[in-house]
């Protein structure tokens, strides 16, 4: 590297001066446009003829304060369910994806079962699976029947693992056949090749869409409340029915967004890293 300071030519100085002016100009334009749009929205909403009624029934601070503990209680259920269901669905999805890639005639029934599984649970509406498990299964009156909450969680795991299995499978198939040839030529067995060469690359590649599905799951775990357990949305619904005011829904909505932000941030981070790696940087 040269240690002498480089003196820019007049042409380069003019170019930099022009770029600086352009940058200042675009910042000013962005600020002005944001202020204009913000003012317009505020005037349109607060100036609407029904604004006062809406504010009273959706944005009442006193009712929000009263409802908050109960909605938080419900949210705690959402969080616990999310963690358990996400782990369960990721593991089951990975297992099914691996089963679908098994080769050889011996594994035909397993392959067919795994394929049938992804077809069924991606096609079946989640609410029907929930009703079948939480209302139908307890009707069997078997001994040691798990609670409705566990059965509801199981319904979520069954449905979501169907989607996640397909994401994992796409990742497995995206690993180039030359990687398999290289691994096999070293004497690795099919299992070792999957474990040490294919899966590590596949999972890294599909981490962003997997996390995206977990964000979707975060909202769907609340559906177990259809079978009885009280989640955040159900708690808000109960509070609303008692106060004849919709503010608790807004409270629950804000809490859901706050809960999703870290997960979405992680997803974006992972996506960015994957994109950087793809570009070889």
């Amino acid at each position: 590297m040269s240690t002498t300071a480089h003196v820019h030519s007049p042409a380069q100085r003019a170019r930099e001066e022009y770029r600086r002016r352009q940058t200042v100009l675009s910042v000013l334009i962005a600020a002005a446009s944001t202020a204009a749009v913000g003012t317009l929205l505020a005037v349109a909403v607060t100036g609407a003829p029904g604004w006062d009624r809406v504010r009273q029934s959706f944005l009442d601070p006193r009712i929000a304060r009263d409802a908050l503990p109960r909605v938080l209680d419900g949210l705690w259920l959402n969080v616990r369910l999310l963690v358990c269901c996400a782990i369960g669905a990721l593991l089951l999805g990975l297992l099914i994806a691996i089963l679908r890639t098994l080769r050889g005639p011996v594994f035909f029934p397993i392959r067919a079962l795994a394929a049938g599984y992804t077809y069924t649970f991606r096609g079946l509406p989640l609410i029907i699976v929930l009703y079948l498990l939480t209302l139908g299964v307890p009707g069997l009156r078997l001994q040691g029947m798990p609670s409705v909450l566990v059965l509801g969680g199981l319904a979520l795991v069954l449905t979501y693992s169907g989607y996640l299995a397909e994401v994992f499978r796409a990742g497995i198939e995206s690993v180039h056949p030359s990687q398999l040839a290289a691994a096999r030529s070293l004497g690795l067995t099919y299992r070792q090749t999957m474990r040490h060469v294919v899966l590590p690359q596949a999972v890294r590649r599909v981490a962003p869409p997997l996390l995206n599905d977990v964000v979707a799951l975060q909202k769907d775990v609340g559906l177990v409340s259809l079978a009885g357990p009280i989640d955040a949305v159900r708690a808000a619904q109960i509070a609303t029915a008692q106060s004849f005011n919709y503010t608790p829904y807004i409270v629950a909505g804000v809490l859901f967004v706050l809960l999703a932000i870290p997960l979405i941030a992680v997803t974006d981070q992972v996506t960015l890293r994957a994109a950087r790696r793809q570009s070889g940087g």
Partner: peptide
């Protein structure tokens, strides 16, 4: 038997 390929095929991870 050792084998080396045209496109190297190192494991990128």
């Amino acid at each position: 038997i050792g084998m080396v390929f045209q496109s190297y095929n190192l494991f990128p991870h």
